[in-house]
Nucleic acid binder design. Structure first.
Lengths: 243, 243
DNA sequence: CGGGACATTGAAACGTCTCAAACGATGTGG
DNA sequence: CCACATCGTTTGAGACGTTTCAATGTCCCG
């Protein structure tokens, strides 16, 4: 038991990186959870180890849990009547997902890679948050982060040119993981191109051509499947900013 | 003073309508703020009465306040290098706005109609929320609501057909205000068509043609400027769902 | 009454979507 | 171990719808 608890701690259950509503240098800048708070979450949550491409819940199904990513990548998506699938977001370590409306999940959720997630019942989480304002503040921060990501996604999807969308996506991923990433210019793409196309609101064909264009312009290289290497970040950024 | 306090109460400072993370029928379903909590906000906030088309803050400017809409309509937007303006959201009574990142506002904010807003300093609000978990929960609900709206907006903007986007927008407004609206089928459009086009990621010309198409199909009538009358909601909804 | 922002309509250009086909990698079962 | 099926990916050609540019019309407010 002790060894297991230690391993869970090492997973950095909810690690906070972003500042939400607060201005820079605010007195109450959110930090990581205290060990006591992590233990509270762990006690309330189920720890799930799931394989890649596993459905965690389906859209419109009854919503009873909030999820926290401990390891791996999860996508939330929405299937449309036409058969198209729009990716709502990719969720990485420390992100939360499980947005509900009227007691049902707005999107579906599927693992992209093998993952470890914490599944917390809504009612228990709510009770915890009602009694621990600091704990709740961490989740407020998380939701705000999701809100920012959703707005940026809209900005991406509103562009007309496919290559520009992909450029913004790659830069977004790079910015998201530049702290942990070993090689700065290498961006891991654990998701398939179909998923990326769904996120960028493109057809897979347009997605493929966009990647070819970025490679042709020497902004990015795709040395192997699942990896993008940003060759000229400055020019890529300039290209991406040309909205 | 007493009369003024009473009037403010009548404005329903933060009225809660949506359920955020909680499933339907959850034990801790969020309700309106208590009178004591409202008074806390009022004491911490400045009450601003502003005319239409007034800038509340500019994008990328230092962020020190969160705003709550007491009356009127506010738009948050983002100006792009190309000169285009994308509307991030329209904010109505009870909504909050003032999303920041790294101490700066992500979007700009301008009043669409004459409005009354509460302007709360971030640090004071944070202090309040750290001491009052129930109060904080209201704001968590609000941010979650914004997140849902942002995702729905992305869904709208991802469509290819202009008329379908406009149809979804009209139905969204109708759903948002059907409780308070007197005539059910009449949807108030306080914003200009330029703003709607910016929200739907359309050119004004495409917006105009979309409105003409909805009118030609007898789904909607536009009896006068600033009003849309939904004639056949069932067929309009069917048309909007055809993604 | 005039200025200016808002709104509509037309015609051409642009870029993605769609359909179709073929290739490669993956994983399964015979 | 190989054959097969499936999924993911790429490339080509035409259709579709918005964007763009241009011009005119409309409404509101000072």
């Amino acid at each position: 038991m002790r060894a297991r608890a230690r391993r869970q701690t090492a997973e950095r259950l909810p690690s906070i990186a972003a500042v939400p509503f607060l201005p820079a240098g605010a007195p109450f800048a959110p930090t990581a959870l205290t060990e006591a708070q992590r233990q509270l979450i762990r006690d309330a949550a189920a720890r799930l180890r799931v394989r890649a491409r596993t459905t965690l819940y389906e859209q419109e199904s009854p919503a009873n849990w909030l999820f926290v990513v401990a390891e791996g990548v999860i996508k939330t998506f929405r299937d449309l009547p036409s058969g198209k699938r729009r990716i709502a977001a990719f969720h990485f370590q420390g992100d939360i997902f499980g947005l509900a409306r009227r007691g049902r999940y707005v999107n579906g959720a599927v693992t992209v890679t093998p993952a470890i997630v914490y599944r917390v019942p809504f009612d228990r989480l709510t009770t915890l948050m009602r009694h621990d304002a600091d704990l709740q503040f961490v989740f407020l921060t998380k939701v705000t982060q999701q809100l920012r990501a959703a707005q940026r996604r809209t900005l991406i999807a509103s562009r007309r040119d496919a290559a520009g969308r992909l450029a913004m996506f790659l830069l977004m991923l790079r910015q998201r993981h530049e702290v942990e990433g070993r090689e700065p210019s290498a961006v891991q793409l654990p998701m398939t191109r179909v998923d990326i196309a769904g996120y960028l609101c493109l057809s897979v064909e347009a997605m493929s051509r966009a990647a070819a264009e970025l490679a042709r312009r020497r902004f990015v290289e795709f040395p192997s499947s699942g990896v993008a290497r940003i060759v000229d970040e400055k020019r890529l950024a300039k290209f991406a900013a040309d909205i």
